[in-house]
């Protein structure tokens, strides 16, 4: 009799949650290592084209981004716009922007500065060509066309 009574009263042992923080910390460290800080709010919508012959950009701190694509905010229309850092810009602003970015860096690093063009794949080349001409004038000759890995032929 007493045997059964005792059984009914016995509680399930609690699962120890002491290791839960460890697991979460592990996840946290994983994310801290594999991700990078988001630099700027995208104001233009960019879906990158695909390519296979890609190279990895070595030094993130030496890369400046020019974003080109249709604005996220529909009120601004659908024509592709240029975004430098956090704001929209004109073609004529690029030269000054390059100059400012150059000023920020050490003399030794200047030749390694790369300008990465993040351009939406439906953009026409006209605006890209104009940007490239501006970059040439500003002597920012190392450029990178940002792409996703994938077959270029199915673009």
């Amino acid at each position: 009799m007493s045997k059964f009574g005792r059984k009914g009263k016995k509680k399930n042992p609690e699962i120890s949650t002491a290791s839960l923080p460890d697991i979460i910390f592990m996840l946290l460290f994983f994310f801290m290592v594999v991700t990078v800080m988001r630099e700027d709010d995208p104001k233009v919508k960019i879906s990158k084209p695909n390519a296979t012959e890609t190279e990895k950009l070595e030094k993130k701190s030496l890369v400046d981004y020019i974003n080109v694509g249709p604005p996220v905010n529909k009120i601004l229309g659908t024509e592709p716009l240029i975004q430098l850092d956090d704001s929209f810009a004109d073609l004529s602003d690029i030269r000054q922007w390059i100059e400012d970015n150059r000023e920020r860096r050490d003399e030794a690093e200047k030749p390694a500065i790369t300008t990465s063009l993040k351009v939406d794949k439906d953009t026409r080349m006209g605006i890209v060509t104009d940007i490239k001409q501006e970059l040439r004038e500003a002597n920012a000759l190392k450029i990178n066309y940002s792409v996703n890995k994938g077959s270029a032929i199915d673009n």
Binding site: L57, V63, T114, S116, R136, I143, S146, V147, K149
Partner: peptide, 8 residues
């Protein structure tokens, strides 16, 4: 960030 590197 991957891409096609080019020299202008």
């Amino acid at each position: 960030d991957i891409g096609i590197l080019r020299q202008l």
